[in-house]
Amino acid sequence: MQKPTKDGLSSNRDKRGSPGALFEALKPGMGGRVFVTVGTTRFDELIRAVDSHEVSNILRSRGHDALVVQKGSGEYKMHNLLAKDEAATTLANGLKVECFDFLPSIADHIASASLVICHAGAGSIFEGLRAGKRLVVIPNTSLMDNHQIELAHHLEHLGHLVCASPETLPSVLSRLDDTIFVPFEKGSPHGIVTAIDRLVGFSN
C-alpha cells in the first residue's frame, strides 16, 4: 500500500528540528489527512492543481500527514506527486499521497479527513459540511448552466467553507485560518414532511 520512499519520514524529522525550517510548526498527527474529491464527475483542473510540490509542501507545513485524492473519471494522472502507475507513495517531505478513481462510498475518507478539498457539487459539499469538516471548494467554471457556483459562494458567504480556483489554491491553502469556519447546522426534512402531512390530511 503506502510504500515509503528513500528518505521518507526520518529525513523529514531532521528537517523539522532545524530552526526556521518550513516544518517548524509541524506537530505530528495534529493536521490530519486531506481528502480531495470530485464526486462522480471529472475535473482535471482540480487534480492538476493539487498535484504540485508547492501544494504538498504547504499541506505539510500546516501539519497534514496524508493527501488522499479521489480523481473521478478524469484523464489527468498525478505525475508530479506520484510516479507512473503508482497509486500511493510517501514524499520526501513526509506527506503520504494516495490516488484512486472511485469508491462506492467516500464517507469513510471524509470522516477520517481534517480538511476536504472538493468540486462544487451539492453532494460533495453537504457530505463534507454534515461531517463537520473544513472545506475548500473549487467550482468547475467550465460547466454550462453552472448554478452550483451559486451554492458554493452562498455557503462561503455564510462562513461554512472557503472557495478557491485551481490558480488560487496554493495561496488559499497557505492563508487558511482554521478559526474562520462557521459551524454548519445540519438541515432536517421535518418542516417539509410536516407540510406534506398537513396537505394530505395526516395531521398527527
Binding site: A122, F126, H147, Q148, E150, L151, I192, L199
Partner: peptide
C-alpha cells in the same frame, strides 16, 4: 390529487 414541489438545495438565487 395534491402536488408538492420542492426546489433543489443547490438553488440559492434562482429556480431551476
Amino acid at each position: 390529487l395534491k402536488i408538492v414541489y420542492f426546489e433543489s438545495i443547490a438553488r440559492v438565487s434562482s429556480l431551476s
